[in-house]
């Protein structure tokens, strides 16, 4: 894979996201393009990961798991970060769109995180020798995912939309603390999980693979969040009797 493939595709994907955000008329088709990007990208990743990429010197073929494990856990963290930005945004400027986007990104983040942890566990068996061990990284990741599952559970149990939005946002700001802890756990404490890799520790032929894979899954991440956002919006519009999604934007009044 050419060295510039991840960067070029990242620029394309981000450009499309900006088009989506900036132009209401583009919203009908941009997600389809990104879904196509993602689908083809995943096919490329599978071909690259299983057949084209070099083996790892010691992990041999098992090292090929890197091309799916890293993108998934990264997308999980991206999802939770989008979520906390929306949560803070909602509390400062009550906007139901931000509430819907927070819910959507949390759910998509949980999806990517759960798959990523599952893959990590499978990867641990041949390399570490165990499926699971309670090291700081695995503890903090588990706590982080449970926090967000709790966040969604709280939202589904709370009837009043205003209370739900405000208190779930407040809770998830506190819950977001688990993300930096998860990220830095491998540096702060002795752990079984290795530290973050960087360009110095990864063969360029492998690095280009997981960076490209990350961009492909980023495109899918965007599509998932957008489609999940539409679901949240439609639920809001039936619960809040807001104007439907396609109507001209009227900022809904938030009742006390």
């Amino acid at each position: 894979m050419p060295k510039w493939a991840p960067l070029i595709s990242l620029v394309l994907v981000i450009a499309l996201m900006i088009v989506h955000a900036a132009s209401a008329s583009a919203r009908a088709w941009v997600w389809k393009v990104l879904a196509g990007f993602g689908a083809i990208g995943v096919v490329v990743v599978v071909y690259f990961g299983l057949f084209f990429a070099p083996r790892e010197a010691y992990m041999s073929d098992v090292g090929r798991i890197i091309y799916v494990h890293i993108p998934f856990v990264w997308m999980c963290m991206v999802g939770f970060t989008v979520n906390v930005v929306c949560a803070v945004g909602y509390l400062f400027k009550a906007n139901w769109k931000l509430d819907a986007l927070a819910e959507a990104s949390a759910e998509v983040g949980i999806f990517f995180g759960a798959c990523g942890v599952t893959m990590g566990s499978i990867w641990a068996r041949p390399t570490w020798g165990v499926w699971w061990d309670w090291d700081p990284r695995l503890i903090s990741t588990t706590v982080m995912l449970l926090v967000y599952v709790g966040y969604l559970a709280f939202r589904s149990f709370t009837e009043d939309p205003d209370r739900r939005a405000a208190w779930s946002a407040a809770g998830v700001i506190l819950g977001y603390v688990t993300l930096p802890i998860t990220w830095f756990s491998v540096q702060w404490w002795n752990s079984l999980h290795q530290r973050q890799s960087d360009s110095q520790t990864v063969d360029p032929a492998m690095r280009v693979g997981y960076l490209f894979s990350t961009v492909a899954f980023l495109a899918l991440f965007f599509v998932f969040v957008f489609k999940r956002y539409e679901i949240s919006r439609s639920r809001q519009s039936s619960a809040l009797e807001l104007p439907p999604l396609q109507a001209p934007a009227v900022k809904p009044e938030v009742s006390a």
Binding site: P54, R55, E56, A57, Y58, M59, G63, I66, T127, W128, G129, V130, D133, L192, Q194, R195, Q196, S197, D198, T201, V202, D203, A205, M206
Partner: peptide, 19 residues
């Protein structure tokens, strides 16, 4: 009773020199 391998954050292709 339990032995686990702690892999480093190194990922190298075999035989690319000085592994």
């Amino acid at each position: 009773s339990r032995l686990m391998v702690n892999h480093s954050n190194e990922y190298r292709a075999p035989g690319d020199g000085g592994m």
